[in-house]
Computed example of a mutant assay.
Amino acid sequence: MFSHVTVGISDFDRALAFWRPLMAGLDQRERIIDPAKPWAIWQPAAGGRPLFIITTPFDGAAPAPGNGAMVAFMAPDRATVDRLHALALTLGGRDEGAPGLRPGYHPDYYGAYLRDPDGNKLCLVCHAAAP
């Protein structure tokens, strides 16, 4: 369904330091890291799409997170949600909802919410039942 998802950043080095370990933890491999552009692109370990991209806005204006906009990353298990949420907080992320079940979505929805250093909202989620 998706070709790529792009989020705006204001400081490439800071954003890369935040996103790089999270993408590695989700088994996404680096496709392009180009500080001169500046942008960084990740893709699934097996290749192909979808791509996840961080970049400064092409129009040169300041990035601005959307109200109601969020990117949700699927984690393979609940432990990965917990681990990456904690990691993101140490990398300058801001908590928007601790890891836990959200049965209002469905009985096995286990998610965590946070914002990156530029204010972009993200979710780490596992849809699988507990082992």
Results as ranks from 00 to 15, higher is better:
P131W: 05
I53E: 00
A69N: 15
G66C: 04
L124N: 08
R94P: 01
A69K: 06
M1P: 07
K37F: 15
I32V: 15
T6A: 12
F52W: 02
P65G: 06
I33C: 15
T80D: 04
P35L: 04
P21A: 10
A130T: 12
Q28Y: 14
I53D: 00
A129T: 10
F73N: 03
A86Q: 13
R115S: 14
R20G: 00
L84W: 01
G100K: 10
A61H: 13
I33F: 05
D13K: 15
D34N: 15
G48R: 08
R29H: 09
P50K: 00
P131K: 06
G68Y: 02
A24N: 04
P131D: 02
R31I: 05
D82Y: 04
E30V: 15
P57S: 07
C126A: 10
D27T: 11
A64L: 13
P65K: 01
A61C: 07
A69L: 12
A62I: 05
Q28D: 02
T90V: 13
A64S: 13
W39I: 07
R20W: 01
L87C: 05
W42N: 02
G66F: 01
I9P: 02
P21E: 07
G100S: 05
F2R: 07
P103N: 08
M74V: 15
F18S: 00
G25M: 08
I41A: 03
A45W: 05
A46K: 11
L91H: 09
T56R: 15
F52Y: 06
G100I: 09
A86C: 10
G25S: 08
A61N: 12
Q43H: 09
A61F: 06
L22M: 12
A88Q: 07
